[in-house]
Design a protein around this nucleic acid. Sequence first.
DNA 1: CTTACCTATCGGAATTAATGATATATGGTC
DNA 2: GACCATATATCATTAATTCCGATAGGTAAG
Lengths: 295, 295
Amino acid sequence: MDAADLRIFEAVARLGGMNRAAAELNTVQSNVTARVRLLEDELGTPLFHRHSRGVALTPAGQRLLPYAERMAQLLVDARRATVDDGTPRGPLVIGALETTAALRLSPLLSSYVTAWPEVDLALRTGTTCELVEQVAAHQLEGAFVCGPVDHPELAGEALFREELVLATARGVRTLDALIGEGDLKIVVLRAGCSYRQRLEDILARRGAVGARLLEFGTIEAILGCVAAGLGVTLLPRALVAGSRHGERIALHALPVHEAHVETLFIRRRDSHVSSALRAFLDHVRPPLLHAQAAE
Amino acid sequence: MDAADLRIFEAVARLGGMNRAAAELNTVQSNVTARVRLLEDELGTPLFHRHSRGVALTPAGQRLLPYAERMAQLLVDARRATVDDGTPRGPLVIGALETTAALRLSPLLSSYVTAWPEVDLALRTGTTCELVEQVAAHQLEGAFVCGPVDHPELAGEALFREELVLATARGVRTLDALIGEGDLKIVVLRAGCSYRQRLEDILARRGAVGARLLEFGTIEAILGCVAAGLGVTLLPRALVAGSRHGERIALHALPVHEAHVETLFIRRRDSHVSSALRAFLDHVRPPLLHAQAAE
DNA sequence: CTTACCTATCGGAATTAATGATATATGGTC
DNA sequence: GACCATATATCATTAATTCCGATAGGTAAG
């Protein structure tokens, strides 16, 4: 058994056929068949059921598959770690919540790429849930997400602490007034957004249930609509305050236990921390101290 | 880069020379040299410093080495998991504290091997510290140790809860009397024993410091010596009560916050739980319910 | 200076993997 | 039922890789 065998096995399992796997691996079907057979002989158990439309994993094959995937990932990691000599360079793909990107990251990102021009930085935004999955699946080296995150394969580090506030149009003086209106609309960034559930909980606890949900793709759009009186949203205070719509929006502070949310940086426990990522974290951590001191 | 390459690399790194690695791998030195060279070419960086007495890892080699080890372990795990069809069989090597083995495991072990005769069970005893290391190093599939254990690669499950008591000779009526004597001796199983530090803490909190330390290799020997008035020890209540020295020993209960210790079963998070181990845990868990209920 | 021990190199042997053609099986379609 | 499209299995041949054994070169200890 070798990494090359497992690579072939994995392709056959994923594509459901030896022909398809051969095509993907740039080889011929007979070769794939032979290698799979050798692997089966070595393990003393069939890994696939053969049928006329292709192959399907046997129970033994199902047990082997996750190891094949880990093996492939381990080789990628090993190469990365070996070549990484301590100087940040190469690709660095990280994720962040839209709000974190807007509120905290912009200045950090630009100074980071200036300090380390050899790093090819990519930032992808998504919801906490999406980002957690992507980090776990090795698609992102790390991500800024809403805490707390409980995932056995991920390690989290608290970096920012945001105060969330309810934002409404200027005319709305109190929360009760808002809820009393009846036709309450919640404005959120995306359906899976971390703040959505929290906002619904907050309103539910105040007696407002079944509010309509409006989705807008950008924070600017949300604030614009909230300013125009379309509904209520939940966002970090600083983000609303710094917006060009700030003047036309009323902020409603929440009690302490509902107001705060921690932004964690998560990464896989078992993956190599590249020099590029380490430098990035070193870059992100210092402002933390000032930000926290100011609050 | 392949598992075979990393296997050779690992042997060279561990043995500090290509000749020695060749001997261990049952091949010739020229072959090892060539494979290492290919690996270095592929990664674009030297992995070893060559000198007249052998080789030494370069920084890049040091970064690669842990991955080579993980790769080897992953292959072993993959084979085990694939072949394991759900019927407990084959080797099962677990560890336990001497006290846990004596107090809890003996009946469980014998019924387990009767229930699953195809399993080759091996039990190794050691201190919590030793057992944790051995589980982490894949030398044991799991172990019973004193909680709490905080190790990122290990998962723990609380199985037993023991009441610890101080045990002295029959004549010693109170703890204060014991401490007042001055020439206090602590009797423990082994220097690194989990209970030693705890016993020292307990005595220190009562004003007894600098007590002499006596080590005996077996629990019987400890209890015999304690009964003979040689010193004091700390052991699970049931263990002392069930001993043949029980009559000649006085038990001194500890306050609740000092008295209890949890026995955890630990195992590596990332390793396959073999059917033999799963069956073992299923075997060990039920008595837990009765034992807890009785306390 | 010699010895012992180490790594580097190279050509040829042995082994292993990949290829391409062919055989075989199955489910759908006319 | 004949036919076709799509699968995997088998096998002889070719290509590639790995392994071996001998040799060369370098360095430190005696």
